[in-house]
Design a binder for these strands. Structure first.
Lengths: 158, 158
DNA sequence: CATTGCGTTCAATGCAAATTGAATCTACCA
DNA sequence: TGGTAGATTCAATTTGCATTGAACGCAATG
């Protein structure tokens, strides 16, 4: 029995879709997770396709993304060649990985950028104001890196 | 003199545009902030329009958004009817407000949703599994709220 | 009070990213 | 080994949102 018949679940699926869209993961990703989250039994790609009215390609790609984030688990149902999926409810871990994707990489990218920039504004043609701004940027990057690496943050997201 | 002539600044403007686009604030918003950040003097809407090759409407709307986030300040130049803007460099504060917009509101919205949902699955027609899932969701929401309200987080983002 | 020079608005547009689905690939079974 | 059922891929399409710019509003100035 599909939980999608329940109005509360419908609404949750819609909201989850909005959320993941805003966060840059696409709407379907959140919808799939929400459906799985409220499904007592594991679901196949075809289930998702039918119940959410999406294409098979979309189902496949988004489920893969959720798997990468650790938000979803593949389960085998014996005697059935299809892949089935169920939702993990370790929200903390899922969110941490999602943030890692969005924030973590960028903090490091900023660090690299500043290094490169430093090299090109050092020397005679270096603009004093730009150097000053880069310094503030570097200070911030270090703080951000520190914050991100802080074990306290990891604990709090548990 | 426009800092946009400097390759490092050009590159930074491009990157900042990508970042804000991914974060859902639009490309121009980041570009404007980046340009202002590396501008020694305050800049007018027309400056932004010319140097970033954007429309006046875009400049107006995005600057407004940055102002709301506290990322940018309006300054008056006497004898000039135009509005001038300069970048704040309190990154911590800016990011906190951005997060408030993206995360904070949603944590509260989730809380409200759960309350509503609770009411509609209580009683005879309530599905046991859905109730169980809602319970886990509520537990998470409380933790998230606590994390978000934690003064430590605020301090670390300073 | 008319004019001038700004800022703002919003319907129309353009564009980038999400989504589709036919073609392709893979694993399994007879 | 061929056949089948499902998963995956990616070029083409759709869709939604950022961006544009003409029209409007408004405040200052002579």
């Amino acid at each position: 029995m599909s939980p999608i018949e329940h109005p509360v679940v419908r609404r949750f699926i819609e909201d989850a879709g909005h959320l993941t869209q805003v966060l840059g993961f696409g709407r379907v990703t959140g919808q799939i997770y929400a459906l799985l989250y409220f499904s007592a039994e594991a679901r196949s790609l075809d289930d998702l396709k039918r119940e959410l009215a999406i294409s098979k390609g979309s189902a496949s790609m988004c489920v893969r993304q959720l798997e990468t984030l650790g938000a979803v688990q593949r389960v085998w149902v014996k005697g059935d060649r299809r892949d089935y999926y169920q939702a993990n409810d370790y929200f903390g871990q899922i969110i941490r990985r999602g943030l890692q994707e969005i924030v973590g990489h960028r903090v490091e990218a900023l660090g690299q950028f500043i290094e490169e920039a430093d090299r090109s504004v050092t020397g005679a043609d270096g603009d004093a104001f730009i150097r000053q701004r880069l310094d503030r940027l570097r200070a911030f990057q270090k703080k951000a890196q520190k914050f991100w690496d802080n074990p306290l943050v990891k604990v709090m997201l548990k």
